[in-house]
């Protein structure tokens, strides 16, 4: 798939930065790759040929940038590239739900919760409320039906915390 390895071509003199393995994370990125990740986390809008201008900004040729993005995807640094849809602007409901689940039935409850395609993500958290998930449905009725089902199947209550107001949503993680 890769027709050449981007970092070898671009950064012969550039040393891959290795930071100490703190919490099982491993950062092995060249300075150019970091610049690519930082720039591309910001909106690049909609154009027929978006990577041409981005490459120019980075001082790269378009094919070099394309292969570098492909490589960063393959190595798992980029999980997705494309439009971020805002479900708050739809008739659907997206809500955060918390549960207090006893440790002995945690796994079973996670299985029940995760089985719904409407559950977008689910995290175990270090708190009395130890399970937190995001539920996205076409309408409120479906959301409350799913929560009732989960309560019935798991024997645990759900705490539904729909978003009232959004002050900020812009995840930018500097590489």
């Amino acid at each position: 798939m890769k027709f050449f390895s981007a970092q070898n071509v671009l950064n012969k003199k550039e040393q891959a930065i290795k930071t100490p393995d703190r919490l099982h994370s491993q950062i092995e990125l060249t300075e150019t790759e970091k610049k690519v990740l930082n720039l591309l986390q910001k909106d690049f809008g909609f154009e027929v040929r978006p990577f041409e201008g981005l490459a120019k900004k980075l001082g790269l040729k378009e094919p070099e940038l394309l292969s570098m993005i492909g490589d960063l995807k393959e190595r798992g640094y980029i999980t997705r590239i494309g439009p971020f849809f805002n479900m708050d602007k739809t008739s659907g409901q997206v809500t955060l739900v918390a549960m207090r689940v006893p440790e002995e039935s945690f796994e079973k409850t996670a299985e029940i919760v995760n089985s719904y395609v409407e559950i977008a993500h689910n995290y175990k958290r270090d708190h009395e409320f130890n399970m937190w998930f995001v539920l996205a449905c076409s309408d409120k009725k479906r959301a409350s039906d799913i929560l009732s089902e989960i309560e019935k199947l798991s024997g645990c209550k759900t705490m539904n915390l729909p978003k009232i107001r959004e002050f900020n949503l812009d995840l930018y993680l500097e590489a």
Binding site: S25, Q26, I27, P83, N86, K89, L173
Partner: peptide
């Protein structure tokens, strides 16, 4: 796509990264 962005249904066109891979553990 531009029309969808103008009403806010699209927030941005960008990459999503893996927090953990970038060291945000």
């Amino acid at each position: 796509l531009k029309a969808m962005k103008s009403v806010g249904f699209i927030r941005k066109n960008a990459v999503a990264t893996n927090h953990y891979k970038l060291g945000y553990t």
